[in-house]
Design a protein around this nucleic acid. Sequence first.
DNA 1: ATGAGGGATGCAACTGTATTGCAAAGTTAT
DNA 2: ATAACTTTGCAATACAGTTGCATCCCTCAT
Lengths: 129, 129
Amino acid sequence: MRARNIKPTAMRELVLEVLSRQTAAIGLPELEEHFEKADRTTLYRTLKTFEEKKLIHKIDDGTGTVKYALCSETCECEPDDLHVHFLCKKCEKTYCLYNIPVPTINLPPGFQLDGVNMVVNGICSNCRT
Amino acid sequence: MRARNIKPTAMRELVLEVLSRQTAAIGLPELEEHFEKADRTTLYRTLKTFEEKKLIHKIDDGTGTVKYALCSETCECEPDDLHVHFLCKKCEKTYCLYNIPVPTINLPPGFQLDGVNMVVNGICSNCRT
DNA sequence: ATGAGGGATGCAACTGTATTGCAAAGTTAT
DNA sequence: ATAACTTTGCAATACAGTTGCATCCCTCAT
């Protein structure tokens, strides 16, 4: 996991472990609840570091809380690596649809594309049963 | 313009006028700057009303400030009406790409699609010259 | 071993956006 | 004119995110 060039401290190991246990993306406030002792700032900076090193990616699902989820092994967070996210408005959870790539967009002339944030919202399969 | 069933007050006329003058989407803080006397709350609620009545639509571009832009005449904010948005990371402006519809997404079985938020970021044609 | 340097952590304070409660002002219909 | 309802303004609050600074910990060179 530290092929991403991150110094593995105890804190970071723990945070990474929590992250890998998630089935949905997780935000800073929710991450805090998993730790009694750790400080918000530390978690904040840990997420920031992880994101910079492309171990996790940021998802802004419009709920007001930025969420994070693990990147795939080979992800470089380039436009080609990106996938669609799904926000369920019932359970409020945000899922990575890893196998649904973000469609290619043809921008007007003169526009340079660097990244895409695509969040689909609706009701997830769990909440519809 | 009030085919959208909104009671036309003086404030609302003014806000709408400012909105229609924009070439880029505008957020509440920036909207405030256009008014010396009006209160933030009033503007906030005006935007909210406009949004509910589908006169404007919300854009969460990930900058931390939700932006708004006018809907097209016939827009009902259904998935079919949606277009792509572009956030320039240089000028920080967010543009509606009205003529680029959001691509259709095939969700996994059991998922119900209600809406899509798609924001492309990069450098706009103005900033690249 | 030891001490210096650099990164990591924790605490506290702060920023900025969004939001709500409540009272005052305005509008509309009878 | 008056009652019912809506809109506006002020104040206060909530909450995520962020920064400054001091402390701690680890590593490396002497």
